[in-house]
Amino acid sequence: MMTLDDVKAWLKNYDGPSMRIMEVCGSHTGAISKNGIPGMLSEKISLLSGPGCPVCVTPSAYIDRLIELAMRPDTCVVTFGDLIRVPGSSKSLALAKGEGARVKMVYSPLDIIPLAKKDPDTIWCFAAVGFETTTPVYAALMDELIRDDIRNVRLLTALKTMPEVIDWLMSSGADVQGFIAPGHVSVVTGADIWKPLAQKYSIPFGVAGFEGPELLAAIAGIVMNYGRGVVKNYYPRVVTPEGNRTAQKEIDRYFEKADVVWRGMGKIPGSGRVLRPEYSFFDAGSRGLDEDHKKNKACHCDEVLTGRITPRQCPLFGKACTPVNPQGACMVSTEGACLSWLAGGRE
């Protein structure tokens, strides 16, 4: 049995092989900054922020398409708050709003149902971004739409899946010796989903929660398993080995695997989901949104997202690229690696 103080002392005094550990969940990135964790670790342990913010990895073509929809007189785009300021190839939804685009911010995708019922003459289009955690919510929304025969709701999807992008990162030679596995993705997928990757690359995966002590414990556990292809579940209060089977079935009912584009990384096989053809009525044109123009050529979001550089190593960081005038998506969401590092003063 170790106490929290034991773990803290162990992490601070660790003197084994150097380890670069990547977190691939924006909420982990945020929690690490918020708890001041980087300063609690030995110099032999460094934390990197991977592609863990779904908003940050949407390609510019997706934002452009959203803006095009929002500018239509009969359409209103409904979205989570942090997507509003992500730059497309020329502007963001926030800027388009100033030019007359209709955009509404909500807490839950299900909030679109009362909107659609109240105003049947408008097409309500949800900006359906997310990883495995959020995809079942869209599936549940589809259930409701079909059951209540609501015909004026569409989804513009940018749904991504985590294992494929981690595989892509590792096979592209990322210098990473362990992963903090995303806690809430794992609630849906189950902790076992990381096993093939852990074994393939002989690196430890630790599923972590979001409280400071949970994260410290997970980091210690990952370091202790250096070089071993194991998966450890440090978030057992909600994560099981097999995940939420009902949610997985719901996802499969409405969405099929697809090759999708990640901002700055290009197309990664099987790394996303789109509505199945039989539900294309509900699709606002999500397929083929592959173009990915950088607003600023000097933006290094892609290298940040893949852990090749830290946010502070980007020449635009905090200078030409700020939260007020973001050049890349990583500076937009509070979960984005760059904004999280800037706001948290992470070095």
Binding site: L4, K8, G26, S33, K34, N35, G36, I37, G39, M40, C53, P54, V55, F80, G81, D82, I84, R85, M105, Y107, V129, G130, F131, T133, T134, G212, P213, L216, T322, P323, V324, V332, S333, T334, E335, L339, L342, A343, G344, G345
Partner: peptide
């Protein structure tokens, strides 16, 4: 600087962005 509950030290800046609710 903020001494965090778990004994870390967090450097705080002014609010970056608008404080919009996020979900993802």
């Amino acid at each position: 600087l903020m001494e965090t509950d778990i004994g870390g030290l967090r450097r705080l800046d002014v609010l970056q962005g608008e404080g919009l609710p996020r979900i993802c």
